[in-house]
Amino acid sequence: MPPFLRGLTLGLSLIVAIGPQNAFVLRQGLTRRYGLLAALACSLADTALITFGVLGVGALLARSPALVTLGTLAGASFLLWYGWRSFRSARHPGTLQTEGQAAQTPGTILVTAAAFSLLNPHAILDTVVLIGGASAGLGSAGRTAFLLGTVLASWTWFFALALLAGRLAPLMRSPRAWQVLDVLIGVVMWTIAAGLIRGVFSGG
């Protein structure tokens, strides 16, 4: 899979999982209160974390063949675990809760979005550690393409969520929809993990 498509696929697989960022953006879109601003803030925060992961962590790992192997295997292991967790979640699907009072001012929107993005251990693990490790085996051009793919996934998802909140909300409240989504995420995660492992043991 080309680096750009790998980054795009991995980014979408990570970001569409139920989480505080998605609930926040969807809530703002549903209430028509700064939904696009919420999407912009979350996208910018994710871009910063992803860039640090790919150009910082990924580039650092790429300086040593041993670190590339370790980083790639660690990323693949996490993908296998993440995929297993998605399959497990599909057995007991949840729903995306959007109830609650939305933030009222642009300043509060920005602060809340930053907190959901930068103070969320799962978001940091996904963007910095997982995405950074998954890019370690790529060359400079490949890491750039991979970065663009993952960033595009973030921006596309958040703005689609804000703009289509009214239509997506009923679907996202359905456990069956999240069950299907969890299975798809698990398949994608395991497919990417298999590709990373195959690359390590095939020497490329």
Rank of each mutant, 00 (worst) to 15 (best):
P3N: 08
P3S: 06
L5T: 14
R6T: 14
G7I: 00
L8Y: 02
T9Y: 00
T9H: 01
G11D: 02
L12A: 09
L12K: 04
L14H: 06
V16R: 07
V16Y: 05
V16K: 07
A17D: 03
A17L: 15
I18D: 12
G19I: 03
P20S: 10
Q21P: 15
Q21S: 09
N22I: 10
A23K: 08
A23L: 12
A23F: 03
F24V: 02
R27W: 04
R27Y: 00
Q28G: 12
Q28N: 13
Q28E: 14
G29R: 02
R33T: 12
L36T: 09
L37Y: 09
L37Q: 12
A38Q: 15
L40R: 13
A41Q: 02
L44G: 06
A45T: 02
D46Y: 05
T47Q: 01
T47G: 03
L49C: 04
T51A: 15
F52D: 07
G53V: 03
V54C: 00
V54D: 05
G56E: 02
G58H: 12
L60T: 14
L60V: 15
L61N: 00
A66I: 13
L67Y: 07
T69W: 07
G71Y: 03
T72D: 00
T72A: 02
L73R: 00
A74W: 05
A76E: 02
S86M: 10
S86N: 15
F87V: 14
G94H: 09
G94I: 04
T98D: 08
E99C: 08
E99T: 13
A103T: 11
Q104C: 12
T108E: 13
I109K: 03
L110F: 07
A113M: 08
A114Y: 09
A114T: 09
A114M: 05
A115S: 11
S117Q: 11
L119M: 12
N120P: 04
N120A: 10
L130A: 02
L130Y: 01
G133D: 11
A134S: 13
A136T: 00
G137L: 01
G142D: 13
L147C: 11
G149R: 01
L152W: 05
L152S: 15
S154A: 06
S154H: 00
S154V: 02
F159L: 03
L161A: 06
A162K: 05
A162I: 05
A162L: 07
G166Y: 10
G166S: 09
A169K: 07
A169Q: 06
P170R: 12
P170G: 04
M172L: 14
R173P: 11
S174D: 15
P175N: 01
Q179D: 03
Q179E: 13
I185R: 09
I185T: 14
G186C: 06
G186T: 15
V187F: 02
V187L: 14
V188D: 00
M189N: 14
A194E: 13
G195K: 14
L196S: 04
V200N: 01
V200W: 13
F201T: 13
F201E: 04
